[in-house]
Design a protein around this nucleic acid. Structure first.
Length: 468
RNA sequence: UCCUCCUUAGCUCAGUUGGUUAGAGCAUCUGACUGUUAAUCAGAGGGUCGCUAGUUCAAGUCUAGCAGGGGGAGCCA
């Protein structure tokens, strides 16, 4: 077979259309379908570079039957041929094959993917093959684009990417149940005289866990580099059975010195709009597919979010609106308790019909590090609530006052000795600062219109499921 | 952890008040067709009805338990 430099299908069918008709090309990819008759076969070939398949036209008088039999749905082939304008309907270009090499066959009896649609539930059972579907190709390309856009957004604004640890020795974040990290023998761990597990003999000499947040370390970075962000995996051992939770997920946490809560909200809103705009500008072919197949209002919703200001209001105002709404809620509305999902949904989807940023929550329902207001009962927290997915961002201005911070830590019974390094920042050159956390998969849910978070990460980790 | 729904062919589903040999579409295999677009047409093969126990003359269908999955709640991002 003649050796030619491989062309990716996106170079032919993408917006740039870098290759013109008449060019001899080599294409490599996976067969989606083959159809035809005795004299001609049509192969729909996809290489993952773009959602569209390219049509390979095979003149059967030139190719032997043996080779053609090997080319089935799921097989991998390399094709040399000439790019021509297609005489058929349905595609502008096609490739007239001159040589074909079969890299890998796919037994038609046992290959699980068909050209017909599958349920997302079935595809989760074959997560090793689902990237070969249109849906997961689209989701994974968008996921990549959003990941790149996160770094571009912060880099363009002078933020530094700070790598916070995955293994942590403090369990004071209070963000949820943690996964223990240990090298001790689970069947026969060393014990202290009182019968407890003796972690002094463990790898780190003390109990350690997978991180639930990089925020506390992010603050250390912000109080030196001014503006930093983390973007890494985080872990929650909570047994959550919902389409919005994973045990392992990716989180983006910017942390900014000299930002107050309003600067923080401005950044969060600008950030989300930037990401959605980036998808609209760079992923339209994939978005159109998802819009057509899963969510007819997807693109409209994305445009709406980028074109309208988020509604900002106090927790207390939200309570008033909910009380006056006349709506029947399963859970009563009551100042001092956290808003339930149904309350958040009402605010976002019914009352304001746009993204909402809620601020100044009661201090009892928020974390210890949030800046206390002068009213002595609320803190400068902010939650960004999105339609369909609820809380997409949670953040706050941080308490920079040493005395107020340590008082709160003691009130909540958090062991101060574990937090000495965090408290030290308030002792030495403290500064007003703020930050927030964006759940990356929740962003991808919103941008793709997918309904289940297990379908926007390649290999989801949930309770009782760590396959692949 | 709680509530609720689902589990029948490789996939997506039908299956009536419990009644004889469990069906369809797609996929697969065989054949037909000179340009197809989820190609079409003809034929064939393919089932421990999630598992276990029970009720009954008789269970895919009713009951209980278990397993797996979906949705909702809680926890949160």
């Amino acid at each position: 077979m003649e050796s030619l430099k491989r062309t990716r299908i996106v170079e032919i069918l993408g917006e740039k259309m870098a290759i013109t008709a008449g060019t001899k090309v080599n294409l490599k990819g996976w067969v989606r379908t083959k159809r035809g008759n005795k004299s001609v076969a049509f192969i729909a070939l996809n290489d993952g570079s773009i959602i569209h398949n390219i049509q390979i036209v095979v003149d059967l008088s030139v190719f032997d039957e043996q080779t053609m039999k090997l080319i089935t749905t799921g097989s991998c082939i390399s094709v040399n041929g000439v790019l021509v304008e297609s005489p058929g309907q349905g595609q502008a270009f096609e490739v007239q094959a001159s040589e074909i090499e079969v890299y890998g066959t796919a037994d038609a009896e046992t290959y699980p993917l068909q050209k017909k649609g599958h349920t997302l539930e079935f595809l989760r059972e074959i997560a090793h093959l689902r990237p070969r579907t249109n849906t997961f190709g689209a989701v994974l390309r968008i996921r990549h684009a959003m990941s790149f856009a996160v770094h571009k957004f912060f880099n363009d604004r002078g933020f530094y990417y700070l790598h916070t640890p995955i293994i942590t020795g403090s369990d004071a974040e209070g963000a949820g149940a943690m996964f223990r990290v240990t090298t001790l023998d689970a069947k026969n761990p060393p014990l202290t005289p009182s019968g407890e597990v003796d972690f002094t003999n463990d790898f780190f000499g003390k109990p350690t866990n997978l991180t639930v947040s990089g925020q506390l370390e992010g603050e250390l970075g912000a109080l030196a580099l001014s503006n930093v962000y983390t973007f890494g995996p985080t872990f929650r051992a909570e047994k959550s059975y919902t389409p919005r939770h994973l045990a392992e997920f990716w989180m983006i946490e910017p942390e900014m010195a000299f930002y107050d809560i309003n600067d923080n909200m401005d950044l969060a809103e600008e950030f989300l709009k930037y990401l959605v705009n980036y998808a609209l500008d760079n992923c339209m072919a994939d978005l159109e597919f998802l819009n057509k197949m899963y969510d007819n209002e997807l693109i409209e919703r994305l445009r709406f979010v980028t074109g309208n200001a988020f509604q900002r209001l106090d927790y207390t105002e939200a309570i008033d609106i909910l009380m006056a709404s006349g709506q029947k809620f399963e859970y009563p509305v009551d100042w001092g308790t956290d808003l339930q999902s149904e309350h958040e949904r009402y605010m976002v989807e019914k009352h304001f019909k746009k993204p909402v940023i809620l601020t100044n929550y009661p201090k009892e329902i928020k974390a210890f590090y949030m800046k206390q207001n002068d009213d002595n009962r609320t803190v400068r927290a902010m939650d960004v609530l999105f339609p369909r997915i609820g809380e997409i961002i949670g953040g706050s201005q941080r308490e920079e006052n040493l005395e107020k911070l340590t008082n709160r830590i003691n009130e909540l019974g958090i062991p101060e000795k574990d937090m000495w390094w965090y408290i030290d920042t308030r002792r030495f050159g403290t500064a007003p600062h703020s930050g927030f956390g964006l759940g990356f998969e929740r962003l991808i849910l919103f941008v793709t219109g997918m309904a289940n978070i297990r379908d926007v990460i390649p290999f989801p980790r949930t309770t009782q499921n760590a396959d692949f």
